[in-house]
Design a protein around this nucleic acid. Structure first.
Ligand SMILES: [Mn+2]
Ligand SMILES: [Mn+2]
Ligand SMILES: [Zn+2]
Ligand SMILES: [Zn+2]
Lengths: 141, 141
DNA sequence: TATTAGTTGATAATGATTCCTAATTAATAA
DNA sequence: TTATTAATTAGGAATCATTATCAACTAATA
């Protein structure tokens, strides 16, 4: 994938070492829209690279967050990660735990207006809607 | 305060027991706009009611969440609470940890539009902007 | 005032995340 | 290609916010 190669090159240019662990984690994050937890990323990546440790997953995620290649949202006491870095809505199903993305044009404008009104220097925004997904709401007790 | 009395009455009508601990915790949440953590609520309430335990703070917060009298946002690995239950933006300072409220009319409309587009049954929304508050951005290294 | 089911306080358990460090290895140049 | 070395990793221990447990207490009711 072109995007993966570009990002890997840019990490190397920034002086970071390119390890198979880092590439595998970034590759998975770029391919999925699952909003996986660190634990889940570990399970997935281990299938292809059984040597990857959970510690390395956490450290790689820290690196990718710092480089703004992934975002994070905290849900139910754990952090879920997302390589979809434009401002968007995350729909969180409170029953099955699924998280879906939803584009919403007005978010950037809201963010700019908020920066002006509040005098905060805004670095990122998280927009979360909690409820039941289409499947889970049908199966409500 | 009238609002406190009304809410206490409504809790009693729902069959919950009215204890001094519960009243003190709800009273503090209604008076502050601090977005306190459970630990912080415990510190504050203990000054007036030294017998309140942290366990009780957590259990009371569960009750108030269930009754939708308080909302919660997860920030930096801990939960912060808010009796301001209308849809609004929470501005989170990543340096000093302060959280400010900011009203934004379009949020309810966004939420309705998202419910239609996604087919989710939406139960609540959290809108968080992260950055540096006016004081902290001036003091940036 | 007695009854009793709901509530509390103290403490243990849990679990996601962070910390620590010896062993490994990606990157560079001889 | 091989040697050098500082960055990175793996694995386990530590942390800490939250949840679970349960005997003692008490708000509500009659
Ligand atoms: Mn997303
Ligand atoms: Mn708020
Ligand atoms: Zn669902
Ligand atoms: Zn600040």
């Amino acid at each position: 994938m072109q995007e993966l190669d570009d990002l890997v090159s840019s990490l190397r240019e920034d002086g970071f070492r390119i390890t198979p662990q880092r590439v595998a984690i970034l590759d998975y994050l770029l391919r999925t829209d699952d909003h996986p937890s660190a634990e889940y990323i570990h399970q997935v990546v281990k299938k292809q690279y059984p040597m990857v440790s959970l510690s390395t997953v956490y450290k790689t995620l820290d690196l990718l967050k710092e480089k703004k290649l992934v975002g994070e949202i905290e849900v139910g006491g754990q952090t879920r990660f997302d390589a979809h870095t434009d401002a968007h809505i995350n729909l969180v199903c409170m029953k099955c735990g699924k998280i879906d993305d939803l584009d919403e044009n007005s978010l950037n404008e809201i963010q700019n207006r908020a920066a002006k009104k509040s005098k905060y220097l805004i670095l990122k925004g998280n927009f979360e809607l909690f409820g039941y997904c289409n499947e889970c709401k049908s199966a409500l007790s």
